[in-house]
């Protein structure tokens, strides 16, 4: 039998419990907000520091100038010079990573025995886990000397070696996302194709790949984003010399390599040279943001379909 005081006690207990629950929820929410704050922080820093830069360098010059000599007395700030290095090294990397990653994903998802898959996937994961500075070392001291035997006169720093190693580095990312997308294609669809007399290969390329298309596209786009943002391989192996070129056998700085070079030096905070790295970083951030959002959207689409 409950007396009044017992009921009052229980109510008080319930109120305190509700307060505690609310407090916990708020704490968890504020943790989740850190991710938002990080993005806002990135946007704020990049924009505010770039603003200082663009007050002195017109944005038109930044986009159209064909020289990048921020540290000379006759300073030029044409981002296209750095972008050409980024574009060339990324193109080499993707020319390797996209076909190889796709073939690997199709092979692992549609052909390989479960045993092969069980061995191959961890190996690919280990490959993906190797620090990029180590890949940079590998590009400079192993791949480039090898290439120099094939291409005489290839400089020690070059976009080709860096691009190739970057491509191999990106393969596991592309193959893993692509394979996920292909394995999400329902078995019923494959059986429909087999029942019509199709081979495994026909089923893989005429049914499974088209069905997983948005997932594959997401994998490629995220691969592009990774290539554009990759820093240490190009900083170590492609050289630090700004060079407006699309020739893979030349040495050229990328956007990322330039940022590393300036940050390693001792430029005073607030100098124009120092501000350039934020402008370059902003360009990098906006490019990868575009790709990331496209990749996210495509990935969500294939997840919703099945």
């Amino acid at each position: 039998m409950s007396t009044h005081s017992q009921i009052a006690g229980r109510l008080a207990h319930r109120r305190s419990r509700q307060r505690k629950e609310k407090l916990i929820e708020l704490t968890l929410l504020s943790a989740a907000l850190v991710a938002i704050a990080t993005t806002l922080g990135i946007v704020f820093i990049l924009f505010s520091e770039s603003l200082v830069f663009f007050r002195q360098v017109p944005i038109w010059d930044f986009l159209t100038d064909t020289q990048w000599t921020p540290l000379f007395s006759d300073a030029h700030f044409g981002i296209s010079v750095l972008l050409s290095g980024t574009l060339t090294s990324s193109a080499i990397a993707l020319a390797i990573a996209i076909p190889m990653g796709t073939v690997l994903a199709v092979y692992l998802s549609e052909f390989a025995s479960p045993r092969t898959r069980e061995i191959a996937k961890p190996v690919l994961e280990l490959l993906a886990g190797i620090p990029t500075i180590v890949f940079g070392y590998f590009a400079l001291f192993f791949v480039t000397p090898l290439l120099q035997k094939i291409i005489p006169g290839l400089p020690g720093f070059n976009l080709l070696g860096a691009g190739i190693v970057m491509g191999v580095m990106i393969v596991p990312y592309i193959s893993s996302i692509s394979e996920d997308a292909m394995r999400a294609v329902p078995v019923l669809l494959r059986e429909g194709s087999y029942a019509l007399g199709a081979t495994r290969l026909q089923t893989a390329f005429k049914v499974v790949v088209p069905a997983a298309f948005s997932g594959l596209a997401a994998a490629y786009i995220l691969g592009i984003s990774r290539a554009v943002g990759e820093t240490m391989i190009v900083a170590v192996a492609a050289g630090m010399q700004p060079n407006l070129t699309f020739n893979p056998t030349e040495s050229a700085a990328t956007v990322t390599a330039y940022i590393v070079q300036v940050a390693k030096g001792d430029l005073p905070h607030g100098s124009l040279g120092y501000q350039t790295i934020f402008a370059a970083g902003l360009a990098l951030f906006l490019i990868t943001l575009l790709f990331n959002l496209a990749g996210y959207w495509l990935r969500r689409r294939y997840r919703e379909t099945y």
Binding site: P186, L188, P210
Partner: peptide, 10 residues
């Protein structure tokens, strides 16, 4: 063969 669930290709 025709299957349990319609399985048109995409």
């Amino acid at each position: 063969m025709v299957f349990q669930k319609p399985n048109p290709f995409p």
